[in-house]
Amino acid sequence: MNIQQELRDAARKLLAEGGVDQIIGWSSGSLPMSSTPLFAATKEEADDLIFDATCGSNLTVYFTKDRRQIARDGKKSGVVVKGCDARSIVLNLKENQIKRDDVVIIGVPCDGIIDRSKVEDKTGGREVLEFSDNGKNISVKGRGFDIDIPRTEVLSDSCISCVHPDAGMSDIFIGEPRGEQKTKDQYLSVEQFEELSAEERWERTKQEYSKCIRCYACRNVCPSCYCNECFVDQNDPQWIGKTLDLSDTIIFHVIRNLHVAGRCVECGSCERACPMDIRLLLLNRKVAKEVAERFGMETGVDPDAKPAMSDFREGEKQDFIMG
């Protein structure tokens, strides 16, 4: 039985017998190579559930912020999660944003998510009209082209170095777990960037963030970014400017990164959501690397661990403090 069918059967069963009001999952999107969130409340709607390499959005986001309308208190929701999404659930449980009794976690094994912008680069910007994925290659067709691309070349950056593809915490697991992925170069992109000179790093940072149009898609798709009022939206006092001034833009992104320090699960939703294709995850991964090296922590992996920034050990390394 394939994953899709198993997922639909499980969802139907939960809706019928599990006392679940809705299943939050993905269904096919309106465009080729896309998916869209689905809130299935009936068995018929559950038949639209899918899971494939286009299901990139982290659905935990529907439990937080003012989207609590959808998964509000007292409403029991099943939610389909990849490895990274499950870590978001764990984090949000720990931070009391979700009640354990309100959620049924349906884990799926993830083979990585396709980054649309990488595919677009491969097609030279020509529109993809047909898409298929055989697990090794994807094939994309459009007017005047029909090409096969190895999956590894179009996977999201977050997926290439993914360590936890399976949901670590789940009530139901669909399909075969892939097991922990041992990637030696988990932080390769970060290390490569670190090797550049300070001047070069600054130039790259400027170049990347000058693309930002301040639409806040990165923030809004992020399940860890759930402040009732974001610091950029505060205007009394107003902390940062809202024009395209580069220093304001960089400060927004740096502070957002620090706000999700030790809370980011590196799902890559922000990067895929960015309409300007800013490589946002590089900063997140730098922070994750520091958190892992210094505090030995990975967000949302241990359900009992406090988030890194709300915790401390007395004898911690403090090499950055003046001697």
Binding site: V190, E194, V254, G262, E316, I321
Partner: peptide, 13 residues
């Protein structure tokens, strides 16, 4: 802990 992350991040950018 906060500075331990902030300082490397500032250097990183």
């Amino acid at each position: 802990r906060r500075f331990a992350v902030l300082k490397p991040l500032l250097e990183f950018i």
